[in-house]
């Protein structure tokens, strides 16, 4: 699997290259800024990309802008965004084109090698991975919001796991319930959030987006 990385810190990019190579990824290029990253993606057509939020020259949220820009040019290009802190708005912005194939994780998670590789695979396949901290922020702050309030506690748990990018089976294992039960909960969530029964991968993204948007 070919990867393009945007990371300006040599220490981290070298570590990531080593780690990914060990796990059978091919790192096509490491870009050190936004424009370099976009050019590298156009050159190598990678299967998945990893982007640091803070990049030169401004050292602000350059990485988010680069990720959004390249996805406008190549809709659905898998992007895993890494940062030293998480902000709900960034997650929302990344998901808002509705194409999925988005991950947003704290850099800490990279050290959990197999989980990180797993997340990368899921994003590459068009799935979605949100950092547990984003979910935690949502869970603590979204009480009292109309839409989320209509969900039962169990449904909220399912939605949180869905946001972390788990599939039905994994959610079932996590909550110790049957696949069938998971399926029923997810159906209820879609219904309560008013999401039409179209293709279900897409709906999962929309459900989480609704969750992030906190809007009825």
């Amino acid at each position: 699997m070919r990867v393009v990385i945007a990371e300006d810190n040599i220490l981290l990019s070298a570590g990531m290259e080593y780690l990914l190579a060990a796990k059978g990824f091919e790192v096509a290029e490491v870009a050190t800024d936004g424009p370099g990253f976009i050019a590298a993606v156009q050159r190598h057509r990678p299967d998945v990309t990893i982007v640091d939020v803070r990049l030169p020259p401004s050292f602000r949220d350059e990485g988010i802008h680069a990720a959004l820009e390249i996805r406008r040019a190549r809709p659905g290009l898998p992007v895993l965004v890494l940062s030293q802190y998480v902000e709900q708005v960034y997650a929302k912005e990344l998901l808002s084109d509705g194409h999925g194939a988005v991950g947003y994780l704290l850099k800490d998670r990279v050290s959990r090698v197999s989980e990180f590789v797993d997340a990368l695979h899921r994003v590459a396949k068009g799935g979605m991975v949100m950092d547990p901290e984003v979910i935690a922020q949502l869970m603590t702050t979204s009480q009292g919001k109309n839409t989320i309030q209509t969900l039962t506690r169990r449904e909220r748990e399912v939605l949180a796991l869905m946001a972390q990018g788990l599939g039905n089976t994994a959610i079932g294992e996590h909550l110790v319930i049957t696949d069938n039960a998971v399926h029923k909960h997810i159906g209820n969530i879609f219904a309560k959030l008013g999401l039409p029964p179209t293709d279900s991968g897409h709906r999962r993204v929309l459900a989480v987006l609704t969750f992030l948007n906190n809007q009825p």
Partner: peptide, 19 residues
Amino acid sequence: DGTQARLVAIAMQLGMARE
């Protein structure tokens, strides 16, 4: 850029070592 990045790198190496 400094301490946080170094900690991430250390954790990454520890993670690899465990693997």
